[in-house]
Structure formats: structure tokens, C-alpha cells
């Protein structure tokens, strides 16, 4: 058996207040394994604002500053500027926010940080809804999902709008590096984080983060669901490095029903609904593959223009 490439050092200690089977716990764990100890983090309102523990407890081996919900992009710019003034250029600054804090309320500050080319790694751990407040829809909630604010009843059910494409939004800022990662593929995860660490400018990591209570799933199946997201290609693993897109895991191309059926939030979907989702996934993956095959520069990736 080949040796794992994941560092053995732990920077996230036991004691987080995350739920059983929490994907976000693993996102933080793998992220810090990839970045190492010379890292500082900014966290807005989200599950991880609570998970490090009540004051004065702190389950991370790195320092962290909390910021207002919509302010992560600004916060990392402030930390970076202050560290640069102190000559601590080698320290990695991380913004670590949920999907709502990124694609909804925090999008403006993130866009500003990207445009200013803030030298930092921004991680969006995506549990596809406002989970800390109790499962309300966000702009990152996928079409078809139940949440407490997209209830399923006889007249109208589930979320009617597709998930916001945050990778495309970030790519459009011409940032040097963006990647999707999954807690079901830790080696790919850590490799991308390492790569992001060594690039200058604003780097973006989109981490799929299964949420057992919010997804209405068995907490024992976090890894299985995370892997199925990749294997069914509903969440493909890829990176956009200097404007060039590469798929890092093609996945097995399993039917999406295998992924959906493990989650109660999709329990109401009809076979027709599932077929519709499958159609979108297939078309999207085909486009992704076509772009990866061309190896051409993203039209929005520009150095100076």
C-alpha cells in the first residue's frame, strides 16, 4: 500500500463543537494540514464561528480573529496589510467562511478583496445552506433541495433556483488560483491547498462540506456522500491555475440518484426531477471537459488589462 501524502501534524485539535459527521470539521483539518502553522485565520458568522469553542477555549493551533458576517474579504485585507507592515510576509492569511457568508452577504467584500489582489487564501466551506441558523436556503443551495425556507408542500416544493456558480464568479475576477475540493478526497484537497499556499494574490478554495443535520443524512455517511458528489459529477474536482482549467478527478460518472437518495433533503424529488438534475450535470461536465481539453486561458484571466 502506498504511503499517504497527507501530513501527520494536526493543527485542529479534538474539542470542536461541530455536529457528529460534520464535513466542515474535516475542511478545517485538511486545510491546516496543507497550510501549516504559519497561518492566521479570519472567520465570520458561520458554523465555525461557534465550533472552535466557547471563550477562552480554542481548538485550533493557529490564531484566529472573528469578523462580522459580511466582512471576511475586508478582514483578510486588514490582516494582510498589518502583517506586511510588520514584515511577516511569509504568514498565510486565510478567510474561512460558509456558503451564505461567501456567495450572499459576503460577496461584495470578497469581490473587493479579489479585485485588490489581497494576498490571502479564501476558503468557502459549502454546506449548501445557512446551517448554523437552522437550515435556511442560501444562494448556494442546489435546485431541488428542501430547506426550512424552501419547504415542500402540495402546491410548491423545494428550491426552484439553481445554485450560484461561485467558481465562475471568482474566475471572472482573474484570480491566480481557484479550486474545488472535497472532504472525500483528502489527498487532492491537501495538494491543492499546498499549491494555493505558494501562489501570491487572492486564492479561492471551494470545499464541499456535507452537513448531516441539514442534508437530512446519516452522520456515518459524510465521506460516502462527499465521494458520491464527485463520482456522480454533481461536484466535480477541478482547478483553475493561472486561468487554465484542469479536472483533477473525473469521478466514475455514477447516476446522481445514488447521491441524492442518501439525503433526506432530496427525498421528495420525483424520477422526473432527478432526470432533470442528471441532464444538467451531464451538460455541465461535458462543458468542463471540453474546456479542460482546450487548455486555453480563461477569457477573464488577464494580467494587466
Amino acid at each position: 500500500m502506498s504511503k499517504t501524502t497527507i501530513p501527520e501534524e494536526e493543527y485542529a485539535y479534538p474539542g470542536s463543537t461541530g455536529c457528529p459527521g460534520c464535513g466542515a470539521n474535516l475542511v478545517m483539518r485538511y486545510l491546516l494540514k496543507g497550510l501549516g502553522e504559519r497561518t492566521v485565520i479570519s472567520i465570520p458568522a458561520c458554523c465555525w464561528a461557534v465550533m472552535p469553542g466557547y471563550w477562552p477555549s480554542h481548538c485550533l493551533k493557529v490564531p484566529l480573529v472573528y469578523c462580522a458576517f459580511e466582512a471576511t474579504g475586508a478582514s483578510i485585507s486588514g490582516i494582510r496589510a498589518a502583517l506586511d507592515m510588520r514584515g511577516e510576509r511569509d504568514v498565510t492569511v486565510v478567510g474561512f467562511a460558509g456558503d451564505g457568508g461567501t456567495v450572499d452577504i459576503g460577496l461584495q467584500a470578497l469581490s473587493g478583496a479579489a479585485e485588490r489582489q489581497t494576498d490571502a487564501v479564501y476558503v468557502m466551506y459549502d454546506n449548501e445552506a445557512y446551517m448554523n441558523t437552522g437550515i435556511q436556503r442560501s444562494g448556494a443551495t442546489p435546485w431541488g433541495a428542501w430547506t426550512t425556507t424552501t419547504p415542500v408542500d402540495e402546491s410548491r416544493g423545494f428550491k426552484q433556483e439553481p445554485k450560484k456558480n461561485v467558481m465562475a464568479i471568482m474566475e471572472a475576477h482573474g484570480i491566480p488560483y481557484a479550486a474545488t475540493v472535497s472532504v472525500g478526497h483528502p489527498e487532492d484537497f491537501v495538494k491543492k491547498v499546498r499549491k494555493a499556499r505558494d501562489v501570491r494574490g487572492l486564492r479561492f478554495i471551494h470545499a464541499l462540506s456535507p452537513c448531516p443535520p441539514g442534508w437530512r443524512m446519516n452522520p456515518m455517511k459524510t465521506i460516502e456522500v462527499a465521494r458520491l458528489a464527485v463520482d456522480t459529477r454533481i461536484f466535480p474536482l477541478y482547478e483553475i491555475d493561472e486561468g487554465v482549467l484542469a479536472i483533477t478527478r473525473r469521478g466514475k460518472g455514477k447516476p446522481v440518484s445514488e447521491y441524492l437518495s442518501l439525503q433526506g433533503r432530496f427525498g421528495h424529488l420525483t424520477p422526473e426531477n432527478t432526470a432533470e438534475i442528471q441532464k444538467v450535470i451531464d451538460a455541465r461536465f461535458e462543458a468542463l471537459e471540453a474546456r479542460a481539453a482546450r487548455k486555453n486561458l480563461s477569457p477573464s484571466f488577464t494580467q494587466l488589462a
Binding site: G78, M85, R116
Partner: peptide
């Protein structure tokens, strides 16, 4: 000094807070 041309006043203050917490 570092001059951060932020995209809103909310971000101006948020950046100042995090920079201040970092010791600036």
C-alpha cells in the same frame, strides 16, 4: 503605511478592526 482602497465603508472599518487586532 498600507493604504487599502476598500469597496465600502463597512469594509473600511472591518479592515481597520482586523489590522488593529493584528497590531497595526
Amino acid at each position: 503605511a498600507k493604504f487599502i482602497p476598500v469597496e465600502s465603508e463597512h469594509s473600511a472599518m472591518a479592515a481597520c478592526i482586523s489590522a488593529s487586532v493584528t497590531g497595526a
